[in-house]
Design a protein around this nucleic acid. Structure first.
Length: 282
DNA sequence: ATTAATGTTCAGAA
DNA sequence: TTTCTGAACATTAA
C-alpha cells in the first residue's frame, strides 16, 4: 500500500544505515528469481553497484531512491506490498534483495537493508533517477516551492476534466498521492471526489493545497497507515499509526466524524474505492 | 469458489 | 487528443 507517507517512512528508516557507507555486496534472497522485477539483471546490477558509496537516500513520489557515488541510483518501487527493512522481516520467504553495507567507524560491523515483498509486484532498478522523475508531475510534498503554490494546484486541476479524485491518482499531474490519501485529502478539503478537476475553484484549490500538506505531513508523523491486512510496516517491522486518524477511508456507512450527521459513502471510480461524505464535500 | 485489496503500466476502444 | 476499461503482475484473506 505504500503511498507517499509510507515511502517517506521507509526512507527515514534506512537512511542512517546506508548513507556514507559503501556497499559491500548486493545479495539475492532465495526468492529473488521469482516475480520481483529487476533492471538491469541482478548480476549486472550487483557488479555495477559493488563498492560504491551511498551518497543519499531520498524519496521521489512513491519511490525510494538510493544515490551512489558513481551517479547510478537504486530506484525501488514498493508498489502494493514492498517494504524496506533493517530488521526482522514479517517472514523469510518473501525477502527479495539484501544490501550488505560495509561498516562505518567500526569497520568489522556489517549492516544490511532488505527489500521484502509479499506479492512480488515491486520493481528495483539501477538507473539514472532523473529519467524516472521526468515522467512524474510535481511531488505532492515537493520542496520545490514554486511548483507547490496554490495557484499551481489550480493550474494542475485545469489540465483535465476527469473527476478530481481520479486526477489526484494520476502521477503525471501530482506525484505521491494514492488511493487512500486521495480520499482523506478531499474530505479535509471539503471537495467532492466527483467534481471535474477543471471545475475546482481557486478557493477549493487553496484548500486542496493546504489539505494535502496537512494530511501527508500528519501521516508521515504517524509513520503511515497500516490497514487491516497489516502488510505495511516501517523499517523496524512496526505498524504505522495513521489508520487511527482516517476520517473516511475504509469507514463506509460509519458516521462522518466532521458533520456527525451523514454517513460515509463508498463509490467506485477508475475501479478503485472512494470514500467521502456527501454532506461535507461539494 | 469468488472477490477485493494500498500501485503501475499498457493496449485498445469509445 | 482525451478518457475510460480491462488486463497484467502475484498473494492473501474474507
Amino acid at each position: 500500500m505504500p503511498e507517499l507517507p509510507e515511502v517517506e517512512t521507509m526512507v527515514r528508516g534506512i537512511r542512517d544505515v546506508m548513507t556514507g557507507r559503501s556497499l559491500r555486496e548486493l545479495r539475492p534472497c532465495p526468492c529473488v528469481c521469482r516475480p520481483l522485477t529487476l533492471s538491469p539483471s541482478f548480476d549486472e546490477m550487483a557488479r555495477r553497484a559493488k563498492g560504491q558509496t551511498v551518497t543519499a537516500v531520498r524519496r521521489v513520489a512513491k519511490r525510494v531512491v538510493i544515490d551512489l557515488s558513481s551517479r547510478d541510483s537504486f530506484v525501488i518501487e514498493p508498489r502494493m506490498t514492498g517494504l524496506m527493512l533493517i530488521a526482522d522481516p514479517p517472514d523469510r520467504e518473501h525477502l527479495r534483495l539484501e544490501w550488505c553495507m560495509a561498516g562505518g567507524r567500526r569497520a568489522r560491523q556489517t549492516k544490511s537493508v532488505w527489500f521484502w515483498d509479499r506479492r512480488g509486484l515491486g520493481v528495483v532498478r539501477l538507473c539514472d533517477p532523473d529519467e524516472l522523475a521526468r515522467r512524474l508531475g510535481s511531488d505532492a510534498l515537493g520542496k520545490d516551492a514554486l511548483l507547490m503554490m496554490e495557484s499551481d494546484w489550480h493550474e494542475v486541476c485545469q489540465r483535465t476534466a476527469r473527476p478530481i479524485k481520479v486526477a489526484l491518482l494520476d502521477q503525471k499531474l501530482v506525484a505521491g498521492i494514492g488511493n487512500l490519501y486521495a480520499s482523506e485529502i478531499l474530505h479535509e478539503a471539503r471537495i467532492s471526489p466527483l467534481r471535474p478537476a477543471s471545475k475546482v475553484t481557486r478557493e477549493q484549490a487553496r484548500r486542496l493545497h493546504a489539505a494535502t500538506q496537512h494530511v501527508l505531513l500528519d501521516a508521515i508523523e504517524h509513520e503511515g497507515s497500516t490497514l487491516g491486512d497489516g502488510t505495511y510496516r516501517n523499517a523496524l517491522n512496526q505498524s504505522g499509526g495513521y489508520q487511527n486518524a482516517h476520517r473516511v477511508y475504509d469507514r463506509e456507512a460509519e458516521t462522518c466524524l466532521t458533520c456527525e450527521r451523514s454517513r460515509v459513502a463508498r463509490i467506485v471510480q477508475a475501479q478503485r474505492s472512494t470514500f467521502f461524505c456527501r454532506r461535507c464535500q461539494r
